[in-house]
């Protein structure tokens, strides 16, 4: 196992600089807001021109400057793909950690509370929709009351099984088909896209986090913490998650790649964001309209690759500081354990 070269400082600096530049570009795009910047105005006399002194990266099939479009597109990258990747990672990490920590038997719920909640849900469904809020309110109150009753009988909550089933559920319908179906229900908008991306990307992270936590849980220091009477939350939050963090952080760029890829493909299939919402995926998808316009592909790919490279570099070097590969390894190995 050779040592890694000692030039990461320069690379890391470059990576940080690139990401910082993107954030600046996004801020610029935000600040100009809905008033379209002059550079991204449609100019029908300049359709699909190759790079020149005036348009460094050429113009797209709508006569807009590709560089300006890409810079303005960072806004949607930061407003949609990045939050979606963050949400997917957070959702996956927390669901997976809960499933891994408590398993199928660890978390128990009051029988009385479950009965009350079930009763109110069935009641809400059977009666008309106008009574729905009342039933839900009654259910919540009843469940709280049941908590204080002397009925101490509990049922185990099969958390692990539930999370895995939900993961299997989302993973079984192909993402694109799901997106097509959802597009039929609601016109694509930013919150919609964010929800679709986050809702379909979380299962791999959940599986990773679940196996990590399940394994760490059996480490002696966690057992000691439990023996010392620490609460579950404290153990999870203060002891387990910090140890699982490097691996989870490494999964963020992967999720971002997936989110971004899906967003781009939706643009390609014509069900992405509206055309006045600029994003990189759309620029790449426009290249299909004008196959001879290589500058569209080159420009889009340059931005995309640099960003992905920077993210991978930063997450990889970060994870190396802590408990690097042993965590990743065990994670990946334990992923195989069971679904």
């Amino acid at each position: 196992m050779a040592a890694l070269p000692s030039r990461p400082l320069l690379l890391r600096g470059l990576a940080w600089a690139w990401l910082g530049g993107l954030v600046l570009a996004a801020l610029w795009a935000w600040q100009t807001g809905s008033a379209q910047p002059a550079a991204t105005q449609l100019d029908l006399s300049q359709l699909s021109l190759p790079p020149s002194a005036r348009h460094w990266l050429g113009t797209d099939p709508f006569g807009r400057d590709v560089l300006a479009v890409l810079l303005a597109g960072t806004r949607n990258l930061l407003a949609v793909s990045l939050p979606a990747a963050l949400v997917a990672t957070a959702l996956g990490a927390s669901l997976g950690a809960a499933a891994g920590y408590w398993g199928n038997r660890g978390l128990r719920v009051r029988r009385a509370a479950v009965v009350v909640i079930m009763f109110s849900v069935v009641g809400a469904l059977v009666t008309g929709p106008q009574l729905l809020p009342r039933w839900l309110l009654a259910g919540a109150l009843g469940a709280t009351a049941a908590h204080y009753l002397p009925l101490r009988a509990t049922w185990p909550l099969p958390l692990d099984r539930l999370v895995l089933a939900a993961g299997a559920f989302t993973a079984s319908v192909p993402r694109l088909v799901l997106a097509l179906l959802l597009a039929a229900l609601h016109a694509p908008s930013k919150p919609w896209l964010l929800a679709v991306l986050a809702g379909t990307c979380w299962p791999p992270t959940a599986r990773l986090s679940r196996t990590l936590v399940a394994q760490l849980r059996r480490q002696p220091y966690i057992e000691a913490g439990r023996a010392a009477g620490f609460s579950d939350w404290r153990i999870l939050w203060r002891h387990l998650l910090p140890n699982a963090k490097p691996a989870l952080r490494a999964s963020l760029p992967l999720n971002l790649t997936v989110c971004f890829g899906l967003q781009t493909t939706l643009s390609f299939l014509g069900i992405g964001l509206p055309p006045d919402e600029l994003d990189w995926g759309r620029t790449l998808a426009d290249a299909r309209l004008e196959p001879s316009a290589w500058w569209l592909t080159v420009g889009g790919l340059f931005f995309l690759t640099c960003t992905m490279a920077a993210l991978h570099l930063l997450s990889a070097t970060d994870s190396r500081n802590g408990t690097p590969h042993s965590t990743l390894k065990t994670a990946d190995q334990r992923v195989t354990n069971k679904d």
């Binding site: 449609l42 099939p61 709508f62």
Partner: peptide
Amino acid sequence: GAGDRTYETIALLFQQ
């Protein structure tokens, strides 16, 4: 209709 390039151009121009 989503994905129709002609409509897209018309829509963008009209919006502008």
